[in-house]
Every structure is written in C-alpha cells, then in structure tokens.
Design a protein around this nucleic acid. Sequence first.
RNA 1: GGGAGCAUAGCUCAGCUGGUUCAGAGCAUCUGCCUUACAAGCAGAGGGUCCGCGGUUCGAACCCGUGUGCUCCCACCA
Length: 877
Amino acid sequence: MEPVKNFQHSEAEQKWYAHWNASGYFNSTPDDRPPYTIVMPPPNVTGVLHMGHALNNSVQDILIRRAKMMGYNTCWVPGTDHASIATEAKVVGMLRDMGIDKKTMPRDEFLKYAWEWKEKYGGIILKQLEKLGCALDWNRTNFTMDDDYYAAVIRVFVELHEKGLIYRGVKMINWDPKAKTALSDEEVIHKQTNSKLYYVRYKIEDSEDYITIATVRPETILGDTAVCVHPEDERYAHLAGKYCFVPLINRRIPIIFDTYIDKEFGTGALKVTPAHDINDYNLGLKHGLPVVDTLNDDGTMSEAAQLYIGQDRFAVRKKIVEDLREAGHMVKEEEYSNQVGFSERTDAVIEPRLSMQWWCNMQDLSKPALDAVMNDTVEFHPAKFKNTYRHWMGNIKDWCISRQLWWGQRIPAWYDAEGGLYVAHNEAEAHEKYKTKKPELAAKQPQLRQDEDVLDTWFSSWLWPMQVFGWNEEPGNADLKYYYPTATLVTAPEIIFFWVARMVMAGYEFMGEKPFDKVYFTGIVRDKQGRKMSKQLGNSPDLLQMIEDFGADTVRFSVMISSPAGNDLLFDEGQLEQGRFFCNKMWNAMKLVKGWESRCVDGMEDSNVKFAMDWMEARLAEVSGEVAEMIKDFRLSEGLKTIYSLIWNDFCSWYLEWVKPTMDQPISARVYERTVAIYESLLQLLHPYLPFVTEEIYHLLRDRQPGDDLIVKQLPAYVTPDALTLKGGAMLQELITAIRDTRNKNQLKPKDTIGLWINTTHHAFYEQAQDILRRQVNAEEIGYTTEPVQGSIALVVQTDKLYIKSNATATVDTGAQKEQMQKDLEYLKGFLVSIDKKLGNERFMANAKPDVIEAERKKQSDALAKIQTLEESLGLL
RNA sequence: GGGAGCAUAGCUCAGCUGGUUCAGAGCAUCUGCCUUACAAGCAGAGGGUCCGCGGUUCGAACCCGUGUGCUCCCACCA
C-alpha cells in the first residue's frame, strides 16, 4: 500500500468510525470482566455541538478507550434530555414563525408539534458526537421522555409523594413572565445591574407629614400593604400606630415596626409588598398583612394594581416614576447597582411571586448525599468542589418541581370537583382511589381533572444513571446490577446543583447506592481573551466545521492539551496548528519506518544500534507508567503532553535518527521489527486521545488480521525500565547536544567532519553508543585519550572530557567556547560553595533526611570533578 | 454579606508529599540549515525579583500571615 503524502483525516475518520461501530467494539453486555461505565450528560435536544461538548466528550472518550485497553468491559451510554423549558421555547418560536399562537391550540396538538420537532432536530447532536470519534454504545441511546423513562419519573413522583416528601403549596417562587412558568432557585441567574433607587414619600394620615421609602421597583408600590421601620429608630418613633397612604391610589396602609429593617439603608423605611418580594412576604405573614398581587402571569399589571392595568411592568416603571414626580411624591432618584434575577432560559427578569406549586422536600434526601461526597465515597475531582457542594447541601431548600409548561412529564395528580387530590401512576389508578375515598361524589361526578403542569426537566435527569439501565423494570435486572454504580461522571461545575447533587440524592434514595464512584469536573471553555464562549458573543467556533477542516484528532488534541482538571480552557486556534502538526509528524514517521520494510535483511548485524532500541523501550516503559498515573488522577492534559513529547522528541528526534540507516542502505530485519513494535506501543498509548490517526497508522504499519485493531488492543503489564539504560540514553543526548552546540558556536558547517577524542572512565557506555554518536555529530573518527589533545576544542560533558578537532580548512576560533566554559565554571564554583555550606551546617545534617544528604554529597563530588575537568580543559585553550 | 480559587518567561499555562532530577512546556523571538520521513521540518540559543511584604524552617515558587490585583460560586437588604 502506497501511503498518501499527508494524513487524510476525513477519510480515515469515516472509515474507522464505521469499522469500530460495525465490529461491535462500542457495544457492551454484562460479562465476567469488570465494568467501566460512563453515562453521558445528556445534551438538550435543542442543542448543537459546541466546544463545551467537545471538551466534555473528549474526556469521556479518553477514559472509555483507555479502560477498554485495560481490559474493562466499557459501556458509554448516549442520550438526550427533553429539556422542558428550552424545547418548549423553541417550539413556541417555531409556531410563531408559522404564524401560530400556542394559546390557540390544545395541549395534544402542541405536543404533536413538539414531538415532530424532537424527531427532526433531537438526534443531530448525537450524530455530531460520532464525528468527534466518541465510542458510544448506540444500542443504549436514551431520551428522558421515552415511554419507560417517563414511567420511571412518574413512579418516582408517586413514591416521594407517598413518603410525604412531595407536596403542593403556596409559596413565593421565581416567576418567568416570558415563559410564564415558575422556576427553581437554580434556574435564576443573578446579575449585577445598574438600577435606580427611587425615594418616594407616603402621606401620613391626619398629618401634613410624609414618610419616605426607597425602592428600585416603584411599580410595586401599587401592591404595598404596609410601611415598615425599625422599632428603635427614633426618627419614626412618633409614627407608632399610624397609617399612611400609598401614593396615586391612596390605599390606607399601616406603619409597622420590625427589627428586620436596616436603619442605615435608604431612609430606614421599607415599603412592604408581600405579593412580590420574599422578605416582604415573610414580614406580611408575621404582621398579618394582606397580599395584593398586582401582576399578571405575563408581567403586565393586574386589576388589583388599580392603575396601568394590562401594561407591561417595565413600561409602568417609567410611567409611574413620571406620575409620582408630577404628584409630588418623588423625593429623589439615585444611581444604584444591585443584583437582579434573570431566567436562565429566557433571560427575562424574574418576578418573585406567590404561587401554588409542587414542591419536593430535600432535607432527608440530602443527608446521605452530603455524607457520601464529604467522606469521598463519591470522589470529586478536583476536590475543591466539595466545598461548593457542602455549602449548597447544607442550606438546601425545598425544590419547586412544577412548571407551567406542556413539554415534559405531566404531573400525575388528579382533582375531583371538590378539589380532592389523587396522586397515582395513571388516570385509572387515580379513579380507583377517588371511588374508594369518595364513592358518593364519584358516582355523581366521575370526571377527574389532571394537573396541567409538567415536572422540572431535572426531575427526570436526576434518574439518568439508574434509568438508562432500566431501573423501572423488574427489580434486579442484570444491566442495572452490572453497570450501576457507574465509574465516572464527567461534567461541568455549572450543573453541580442542578444535576450532580440531585443524582447523588436520587441514587441513594431509589437505589440505596451512589450513582458513580467519581466525578470529574471539566473547566469552562473560554476564548483567547478569557471570555466564556456564547452565542451572543459569537466567539464560539463552529465545531463541526473545525472537525471538517482540521480533523477530529486535531480538535481533540487542541481541547485536551490545555485543559487541566477543573481549570478553564482557553481555546486558541494556535493549538489546532500544534495538533495538526503532530498528526503529520506521526504520519511522516510512519512513512519513514514503512520505507524500511523493503530494505530489511535477515540476520544483519545490529549491535551498533542495540543501545538505541534498548533505550527507547526503557523510555516507553517509563513513560507508560507515568501516563497511567496521570490518567488515573485525571491529569489528562499532562498525560497528552507527556505522550506528545515521547513521540516527538524521544522517538522521532532521537530514536529514529539513531537507528535510521543512511539512504538506500539495508536495515536489519530485527531493528525494523523492534521499531515497528515500539511505534505500535506509542500509538496505543496515544490512541485514547487521538483515535483516528493512531488506528490508521497502526493498520498502515502492518497487514492486520481481522479483529487486530488498536482500539481493542490490550495494554501490556507495566515493566520497570532499566535505570542504567535510561541514564545512558540521557548521557548520549547530552553528548550529542553539547558537541552540536560546540560545532555551531565554532561555525562548523554540518557537512564538516570532526575528529573526536574522549577522556572517560565510562568505556562500556561509549562502546555501545559510539557508533550512534559518531553519526549524530558527523565525526569521522572517535578515539580515546587520557591526555589533552593539542589544537582541539575542549568541552566537558558530565565528567567526561571531549576534544574536537575540525577537519575543515578554516581555522577554529575558540573564543566563544572559552567564554562559555568560564561561565560554567563560575556557576559551578558558586554551586559548590552552596553545597559545602549546606553540608557544613550542623542543623542541616541533623534535620535533613539521609537520602537528601546523600544526594547533596553526590552533587558535591560531581561538581568537584566537573570543575576539575573544566579547569584542565580551559588551560588548554 | 458568605465561600472558593488564581497571580511563575512576551503570551497561555505545568510544577503531585518543602530539598539544583525545580525554575519547566507549548507558542512567540533569535541563529544556522530546503541534511530524500517531515520547512506542517531539523539543529541550536536567548529569555523569569516564581505579585509585594513579613514569618516558619537547616532549606520556600511550594507552608503560615498580610497587602494588592483579578476570577468564580452562593446569598431575600429594599
């Protein structure tokens, strides 16, 4: 097979992905091997693949592929989340574009559109993951609204309701006026916002006096039912028992006293609007104040507001400010910066609102989940997120789980004509309960009305690690038993509360067991300037285009090379270049090695390069061990850097140059075989990171039997590398570099040959390495000496003295060399002084560990020897 | 208001349990090479008060305190 000039990524990607998939490598069924399981964080059906997914899924793919090579039965489950509010918004938007108003259609019809939308667009993101190379078990694809999944969610609701953990109640919630639904606290994003603080005065009853309050939401004064001041505030002591009037509408409201008030803020007087502020609501409860809800569900003013009815809250804010000014109630206006809550999904400003919703009590659920993380039963990587987790779990509040939407699991609660409530798995069961409980009424009015609301999308996704393995099927099903708990969850810290914490809770509650052993938090992908990638900023590169242009391996390389666990990833297109060059480098190395195949000669002498092969194998063993540790610790970017350097520097720059026969010369078959084997091992080490290019080269290196694919090749057991061999290789590199440097500094052209004389005691080493050394520094001859060589350039490597004689006609200027040696000498002398000092220090000798002292002694003698050698060589120049 | 984290080469960052294998990598810069695997390359080089200050220690980029400057998360002060 004639290799093409460059690595053709798109062909290789398609070919190998199809091959892996068809070979069943991605699929898993329980067997005798230990499982290694990952459930993919299900992307929203509304999503398109972006850099965050690229990072997240690259990490998972690396873990899965690595585990596969280590003999685990790996199972990576794909799927999508129905994303209740996000999808509903999309569908509503689509309908609007078609000129249809959601309000005009019945629920069933809307859901038909929604399902159509899901069928059409919902699978796109999973298809895109194939392009990235993800080794996903496609037979196990799940969707959080699949029938069985839906049933599981309902079952969980019913069970929690029976336990009394789910209840219905009127509380202050976060209202999204755009989506017209309640939101959980987690779905509210607080942003620092420039507002105005308005000082408004309220006329006091039977007096010419006013009391001035401060507010940033002046439109809410229409819902005021009191003004509150601090009981110890002398400024207002005389107002005890008095009333004042809400401006513009002249509602008579009491002036109340409560220590909740901060005397220092504003005027020390607070307007109390129990319907639209959580603090005010609590004050209202305490003081028995009425609640006046001045807002409609779409954010316009309600009848109760008396004024501005039907107008939008922000328009009203402007108007009421003018009207207050005109009426002489506006005292002053100040610039003010405060936190305002926005809807995570629609970006609408949240209105706190009193509302009847379904709640899930989290107190009991949170306890085992908190413990599990704190005592590392569930390990967090990096561990700093344990703090975040503990803080949230420790202060957990009840979860508002109902949403005023249609797309999602409909709440399994039915009401009779008297408002009686029946929570059941289905309507028939609800009827049974109804008939049993209220036989007379049921006989007269058999109809039950189902709750209109659906459940928060996270109320389904918290079951993900159990339900994808069929939790809701018969108990003890084989898959669940085998794959649960899963090995590692890879996700973003952004959803630690939304999802991670809740999965841990669900795991303990419904399985009695944690959902995963470890959680690896990836960073957030940012652009070069450190800004979060987002659609609005337009700084999110088109991932699919990028894969097409550069190849999946290159994209994976670029996101993995700079993303240590938990740290943000600054994505720079420059990294793409580095990745592309790397793929190409390996391609060219393959071409070189492949070119030797036809020049192989059996039984040819190879002792001259045996040193190189031994060394490379030792390095491979050494680095394999390091990489294993790094991946175990989730130091994935470090692992990639290490392999990168092993391949580029050790293998390509050193090893291949060392064993490379000169042009058209034959090569020993044994050297060829060992080189191919080494290259295969390198490819294997790298494969989890760059699956396509490695598989492609693996197959180009040799003809393979069916089933001999890199993806399923098992990693060999770790062998301890020979320390002496490693040291020898490093010494050889040092020698070559030093001599080349000397050649450069003395203006020797690469083609000029040299004579090299060595004064050494390491004869065994040189015997093995001298042939390589000679070729690498273009030495015509290498000799040994115990005396300085006249007319040569001297240099020192470790404690060996080298003498270089140029064979070029030009005279050699040794000035630069001399200068360098003098510098080295100075440094070494200083270094020696510091060691002497250390070793002469009684306290050091008393306190330092013996091996540290030993190391210092060794350094001392090395430095001494080197100084001696240097001085000797200098004397020569 | 509470909590967490960061500050190391021009840029982006590594540096795990304190000890010249600890001051590193990639990119960028400079020098010399179109040496038949690779110019998407090769061989070399230069470049840092490890944010300031104080402390602990025989020894600090690393531990402690403090100051400064950033970042993120949480929180019901209008």
